[in-house]
Design a protein around this nucleic acid. Structure first.
Length: 154
DNA sequence: GCCAACGTTGGC
DNA sequence: GCCAACGTTGGC
């Protein structure tokens, strides 16, 4: 089993939205970056776990644990003219963008803030993709040891 | 294939 | 709201 971190803006889609969804499960659609696409399409497996991470907000940080409920499949929002993430160049016969389904496992007792994670960037969380300067990827892998350490901060 | 211009991301 | 970092686009 592998570990991941997936970014969302809390004002757009927060933990409470996921909790309110049927079976606490939703499609993680709208990712339009090739590197992230490759992970969604090729690497994520059902049963993998992922941190739900809040970005572009007052207190960025890890807010919850999710489980990958369905491995990568074509993202239909790319074919929907009216959708904000519509991509006219994505051919349904050869889809360009992929998504997974995620299920809420549990909220963390508190948000583990980016500031806290950074405080450990030189040691326990050395090499964590999220903390790499200039990183903007909305989906990143998390090493098992890092995953465990972050939860120990909870 | 280079690279300048542009748009987006996301912390601060 | 600012701005640095990065990805994408398109002219050449």
């Amino acid at each position: 089993m592998r570990y991941w971190l997936m970014k969302t803006e809390p004002t757009t889609f927060g933990v409470e939205d996921l909790a309110a969804a049927p079976r606490h499960t939703t499609g993680w659609d709208g990712v339009r970056n090739y590197q992230a696409r490759n992970m969604l399409r090729d690497e994520m497996r059902r049963g993998d776990q992922a941190f739900l991470y809040y970005s572009s907000c007052e207190v960025p940080g890890v807010a919850a644990i999710m489980q990958i409920a369905k491995a990568g499949y074509p993202d239909p929002t790319a074919f929907d003219r009216k959708n904000h993430h519509y991509d006219p160049d994505s051919d349904p016969k050869n889809p360009r963008w992929f998504m997974v389904d995620v299920q809420l496992k549990r909220r963390l007792a508190r948000v583990i803030t980016l500031e806290e994670l950074r405080a450990h960037a030189g040691r326990e969380l050395k090499g964590m993709v999220l903390l790499r300067p200039g990183n903007r990827l909305s989906v990143t892998p998390v090493e098992a040891a890092h995953w465990k350490f972050i939860l120990s901060l909870e």
